[in-house]
Nucleic acid binder design. Structure first.
Length: 219
DNA sequence: AACCAGGAGACAT
DNA sequence: ATGTCTCATGGT
């Protein structure tokens, strides 16, 4: 590995690099666990600013609560989350999520990470990335989010990357393990990667990976 | 005015 | 196990 490519520094090294390169505000702000889960579904293929509009509408109508949300007619719910796009699909997803939250209660906290991940992915509307978001930000499990930005970054850094989320996750599980980041660090890392991804869209990944460069601020 | 945004599911191959 | 299509608004 005298290639000098990014894999040499490992995921821990990538984390250190990004901490120095970017300043981000508190990532994934939410008052409650359920609000965080709702946000995770609404943000699918959707800009976060649009999600905030929907979350505010849900908060104002008291629907950021599993039981209250289930009691709401689906077409009314769909209308409230319209700004987030795919509102008919997502309204159904949110109902499935609310049912799961009520059914599970605190039992979820006792499950192993692998078990809980499988359980979450059984919920309609929760795929691999959304499940990992919830594992990380609601249940405090130290998982790496292999979203599109992360895969591009990892590839640019010299890691072997697959085309899909799950394939990449399996491929790089050892590297994530070796990094040994805490859940808190993983949480910050995901935010940093999204900030880096937006920066890279304009300036390329090289400007970041070269390191020691400019310190960019996140909007 | 295409293109993308803090993806997932159904279905075909 | 891997593609393609649909969902659908709002910002650049």
């Amino acid at each position: 590995m005298a290639t000098g490519d990014g894999e040499d520094r490992g995921i821990r090294g990538l984390y250190d690099l990004l901490v120095d390169a970017f300043e981000i505000e508190e990532w994934w702000p939410a008052d409650t666990d359920f609000e965080m889960m709702v946000g995770a579904v609404l943000t699918q293929n959707t800009a976060w600013t649009n999600v905030e509009t929907s979350l505010s509408a849900l908060r104002d109508t008291g629907l950021l609560d599993p039981a209250a949300l289930l009691a709401c007619p689906q077409d009314v719910l769909a209308d409230l989350i319209r700004p987030s796009g795919s509102y008919n699909q997502k309204a159904g997803y949110l109902r499935a999520l609310a049912s799961w939250a009520i059914e599970k209660g605190d039992a979820a906290r006792l499950m192993s990470t692998a078990e809980l991940r499988d359980d979450l992915m059984g919920v309609r509307g929760v795929g691999p990335e959304t499940a990992d978001d919830i594992l990380l930000y609601v249940y405090g499990r130290p998982v790496f989010i292999f979203d599109a930005y992360a895969r591009r970054l990892l590839k640019a850094a010299g890691f072997p990357v697959a085309t899909t989320y799950e394939a990449t996750r399996r491929l790089l599980a050892p590297a994530v393990d070796e990094a040994g980041l805490t859940a808190s660090e993983h949480g910050r890392l995901h935010g940093l990667i999204v900030a880096a991804g937006k920066h890279a869209r304009a300036h390329g990944w090289e400007s970041i990976l070269a390191g020691g460069g400019e310190r960019a601020a996140a909007p």
